[in-house]
């Protein structure tokens, strides 16, 4: 493909690009926010991948069975919150290792949705939903395809920032992660706070999964998250467990992906598509590495203190 000259109307392509990045980033942002809350409460949630795909599956199945996107989202929320409670029970009550238990939840989500689709619809790898989430519509110009969840996303980020940084509840939640003993000494039960954190995280994962499946595509296919849940987990770490930081990190990963695809259109076969697809993962590694360099000494010390 020939290289593009200057596009005919630069402003419009720019706005279209922003809309596209926003749409592809939104599922990742919701899931990253869910992981961020759990991380603040002291649980590294590697089950995000499983919760996200469970949310996507439940949203599509619910929408298909009821012909209502609202019911679909409600199904997704119920499934994801139940999954989160299961993770909480295994980690806090059975005292399993969070990383391994999280991988288990991810496996359950990936395998369970596969089984559910086959049990409900016979031998199929994917299911179409009859309708998508409500969208902004033609009046919004380039943003016409954005769903309600995309529109709600900035408000959710802002609300979480206020709740986590400026309220008693948010500070108690952070205390449970940073120093559970101190939290307990002022009458906050870290075990219960983690349940709350994981349940809120489950709701956010449900939104992320629903947006992924019903936002632009109206389809659920087996394994469609393709590692986005793990990428969201990386965004939590990259974003320093901060709502705005995590959302920015998730946006950055989507930006890299978008630029990669655009770059491929421009440069054609010079760069192999696999290299471009791996850019977000490489960016994640670099991001985590940089953030650990920045906090190097402190992180090493805090880790030793835990034993």
């Amino acid at each position: 493909m020939a290289r593009h000259a200057a596009p005919p109307d630069g402003d419009n392509t720019m706005i279209a690009a922003i809309a596209a990045i926003l749409q592809s980033a939104t599922p990742l942002i919701y899931v990253a926010l869910g992981g961020m809350i759990a991380a603040r409460a002291g649980i590294w949630n590697l089950g995000l991948e499983g919760l996200m795909i469970a949310g996507a599956c439940a949203a599509v199945v619910g929408t298909k069975q009821s012909d209502s996107a609202g019911v679909g989202i409600a199904c997704a929320v119920v499934v994801c919150v139940l999954g989160s409670i299961l993770l909480w029970f295994v980690i806090e009550k059975l005292r399993a290792n969070p990383v391994i238990a999280g991988l288990g939840i991810s496996g359950l989500g990936l395998g369970g949705t596969d089984l559910a689709i086959q049990a409900i619809y016979g031998n199929e790898g994917s299911v179409h939903a009859p309708l998508s989430l409500p969208q902004l519509g033609a009046g919004a110009g380039a943003f016409a395809g954005c769903s309600v969840l995309v529109v709600a996303m900035p408000f959710v980020v802002a609300a979480l920032w206020v709740v986590l940084r400026r309220t008693r509840f948010g500070l108690q939640l952070s205390a449970c992660g940073e120093h559970p003993f101190a939290a307990r000494s002022v009458g906050v039960d870290p075990v219960r706070m983690r349940l709350v954190a994981l349940a809120i995280g489950g709701v956010l994962c449900a939104f992320g999964g629903a947006e992924l499946a019903l936002g632009r595509l109206q389809i659920f296919s087996v394994g469609m998250t393709a590692g986005r849940g793990y990428m969201a987990f990386a965004a939590v770490v990259f974003g320093a467990m901060d709502p705005i930081g995590s959302a920015a990190a998730a946006t950055f990963f989507s930006l890299v992906e978008y630029l990669g695809i655009k770059g491929q259109l421009v440069f054609g076969n010079i760069a192999p598509p696999e290299l471009i697809l791996s850019l977000p993962y490489i960016a994640t590694v670099l991001g985590v590495w940089i953030s650990s360099r920045l906090r190097g000494g402190a992180a090493a010390l805090s880790e030793l203190r835990e034993y």
């Binding site: 499983g50 299961l86 295994v90 009550k93 059975l94 005292r95 399993a96 290792n97 391994i100 238990a101 991988l103 288990g104 939840i105 991810s106 496996g107 359950l108 990936l110 395998g111 369970g112 596969d114 089984l115 086959q118 049990a119």
Partner: peptide
């Protein structure tokens, strides 16, 4: 469905590090 095996593996993963009872 082969997913049954994935679910068995995942269920074992979920429980194997438990240290409670």
């Amino acid at each position: 469905p082969a997913a049954a095996i994935d679910i068995i593996n995942a269920a074992i993963t979920l429980l194997i590090t438990a240290r409670a009872w």
